[in-house]
């Protein structure tokens, strides 16, 4: 009890915790819901992991998906900001990190972005970010 967001996320994305990661993922989501600034802190931590090497990045994206389902409107508000969406664009776009990132990570980000444009049709910033990638020919529909 009383684990910090950072320690929950480190456990959830640690390669040696592959079997019991789900327990840590839910622990991370629960901790977000307990803290006043949970979503803001969590999103910054997730960005750092998404910019790490492949396994941690993929696992962080799985954690992000769980947060979108379990952490409600407060969390959605943080995702629907360019401050966060730009970090995803940096990973996918060859103008930034795209050339040194695995296809698996980039494709998962694109799929997630697309799913958010469907789930949150009135969140214009999410649609803008997706269109930016589409204009650059980075979306294989």
């Amino acid at each position: 009890e009383g684990e910090s967001l950072e320690s929950w996320l480190n456990k959830a994305t640690h390669p040696t915790n592959r079997q019991e990661d789900w327990e840590y993922i839910i622990g991370f989501c629960d901790q977000i819901n307990k803290e006043l600034e949970g979503p803001q802190i969590a999103v910054r931590l997730l960005v750092h992991k998404i910019h790490s090497q492949e396994w941690e990045a993929l696992q962080a994206l799985t954690v992000l998906e769980a947060c979108m389902k379990n952490c409600g409107r407060r969390f959605h508000n943080e995702i629907a900001r360019y401050r966060f969406l730009n970090e995803l664009i940096k990973v996918v776009s060859p103008k930034y990190m795209g050339d040194s990132v695995s296809e698996k990570v980039k494709n998962k980000i694109i799929e997630m972005l697309y799913s958010w444009t469907v789930a949150f049709p009135n969140e214009a910033k999410i649609a803008d970010a997706y269109q930016t990638l589409k204009r650059q020919g980075l979306v294989m529909s």
Binding site: Q40, Y82, N86, A129
Partner: peptide
């Protein structure tokens, strides 16, 4: 409940 809502944001990366 006290809902600290910070609306500041960046510009979209092109």
């Amino acid at each position: 409940n006290y809902d600290f809502h910070d609306d500041s944001d960046e510009d979209l990366l092109e």
